[in-house]
Design a protein around this nucleic acid. Structure first.
Lengths: 327, 327
DNA sequence: ATACTATATGCTCAATTAGAGCATAATAGA
DNA sequence: TCTATTATGCTCTAATTGAGCATATAGTAT
């Protein structure tokens, strides 16, 4: 929600310790707490940069798709975001625009002196990028693309494995049903992360360790980066439904079908064309231009433009109509 | 959205570097990146614990309401969450239940070797707490409680100051209108953080520094903790609308009016009684008990219980009816 | 030119949900 | 018994949503 732009403390706030509090033991307490055992950390900054190309949502990766742009916070970086920008630019040549924090992972498993804290961010960009290293989201999460029947084979396999993992433990069964919508339950687009974590827990992804039995398609990543990617997809799918974030991914001028296909690519589901159009127009999210698309078959579609003025409180939800499921 | 329970990496994921990637330069790159300049950090863990008491949402504080429970990550802590739990328990005696990460702030303003990274969390608990130090949310954000006319004085003052800050800069004016709903625009319950940050930017809260002119009521906090609190309120207000999170704040058995008042306290707005009841019952979020409330005036109200089974995909939105605004 | 195909766009109709408020029921206390 | 007070049931209208038919406008094959 909050596109918190200022990621970092204002310097002034550091000087506030003496302000408006009579008793000073607060400061003492903190000092006391820090005099022993305080762990030193390195902070690593990880970026999930998303774009749309050819109706596919893509993410910027390194190393043949096996990890995300990332790097440690350095003393020269004057803020977390600036550190992130530095690494992404250095590693991919890309200059980030607006950025949204996702989640902070701490390494763990045992007490230790040297720690790694991984702070992940999400950013969006319009298509037409020149960098190499863009990979489709659904390379990593084939089961999340429900626009075609292709996902069914992937889902069928997953469901079989999940069932045998759950056995007759009702709590496991119930979670599988919830998260993957096994029996009649609804599939929730937004719970990408929950699904991935369930697969992890069930040992069905290679990241789960050497004892896992990864018989599921979908490419893995190093250093838990695929979990970070799942977090990003969850967030973005939720976000496009209550903010006009899609418009950061489509060109300045677009047809309503382009817009719809962008929503479909991100949410992984097909929508009802006429109703989608009605929704968008009622919300007054867009305004007509006097131009039309050219060079395509059929009646040419009018080009529209995003109406920035109005639209802070509008959203682009509903109008979902999964099509042709059980083929 | 994602109640990501596992805050931390699995240990196995650390051993993955050798897996499924032919070329190893990834590891090299990271090593190279870290050989100079890497900043060392301390991680501080901050908790926003919320409860409901007497129809008021309250937060657990220290030092007479001037800061939140917090402490540094220590070597003994085997995860960020466990560190958080340790500090909260040590400082307040309270044992946290489920916890949700909010945001990570990095200190900044200048390049430096020793850094502080502040990782904030939110947790909910039922009423009946014995600790001292609970403070009403609206002590810190009086303008956010729109259930009574009391907020109007606070809001009026704010609007006047904001207008004089904006002057005739249209971008500032537009933001004020958006965020505080100055002219006809809708007030968005969820944007607590945006409002607080706007006040900061306008120099209307003391945290904004020595040059600020804090002529607005609402108690301030140390170390940017009030911003963390604002983040928590934003998150919680959003969350209760698409998950059954309210039920973590009301007793096992409750009347529908209790439930409504809980929603009202959190969202800061009044709702239409009959329609709220209709909504809750249609969603099948609750089930009847055979018991009734006693000891109050009027017809006794039936007690209900949360239906955990069904309700993952249900929400408790709509039914908002601000009452008696312009008195 | 004509038929055919493909897409865009306009419009309808029924079902459901939301907004507002009236009416009745059930209690405690005067 | 009467009154104040709260709970709960119900109605009525206005919007919104889900589904799909019909028409418009282009390119392409015959």
């Amino acid at each position: 929600m909050s596109l918190c732009e200022t990621d970092d403390f204002q310097s002034v706030s550091q000087t506030l310790n003496v302000m408006s509090v009579k008793t000073d033991p607060v400061v003492k307490r903190h000092d006391l707490g820090m005099d022993h055992h305080v762990a030193t950390c390195r902070a690593e900054l990880v970026a999930v940069l998303t774009t749309l190309r050819n109706g596919m949502p893509e993410v910027l990766t390194l190393q043949d798709g096996h990890c995300l742009p990332a790097g440690p916070l350095e003393t020269e970086h004057t803020s977390l975001q600036r550190g992130l920008r530095h690494w992404v630019e250095q590693q991919t040549g890309f200059r980030l625009g607006h950025v949204e924090q996702l989640y902070t992972f701490g390494d763990a498993a045992q007490a230790q002196q040297d720690r790694l804290v991984r702070i992940s961010y999400m950013a969006l960009t319009r298509g037409g990028q020149t960098q190499s290293g863009w990979q489709s989201w659904y390379t990593y999460f084939p089961w999340e693309d429900r626009r075609t029947n292709a996902c069914h084979t992937s889902l069928k396999t997953i469901q079989d494995h999940l069932k045998s993992w759950a056995g007759d433990q009702t709590d496991r069964l119930e979670r599988c049903n919830q998260v993957f919508g096994l029996n009649g339950e609804n599939w929730n687009d937004d719970t990408v992360l929950e699904r991935y974590e369930l697969l992890w827990e069930a040992g069905l992804v290679p990241e789960a360790g050497p004892n896992s039995v990864p018989q599921i398609n979908g490419q893995s990543m190093l250093w838990d980066h695929r979990r970070i990617l799942a977090t990003a997809l969850s967030r973005l799918r939720a976000k496009i439904r209550y903010t006009p974030a899609v418009f950061e991914l489509v060109p300045e001028e677009f047809t309503l079908l382009h817009l719809q296909q962008a929503m479909e690519a991100l949410s992984g589901r097909l929508m009802h064309k006429q109703n989608f159009r009605r929704l968008v127009q009622n919300q007054q999210l867009v305004e007509e231009t006097d131009r039309y698309e050219s060079g395509v078959q059929g009646r040419p579609a009018r080009l529209y433009r995003f109406r920035r003025e109005n639209s802070e409180n509008c959203y682009l939800s509903g109008a979902e109509l999964p099509l042709d499921y059980i083929s």
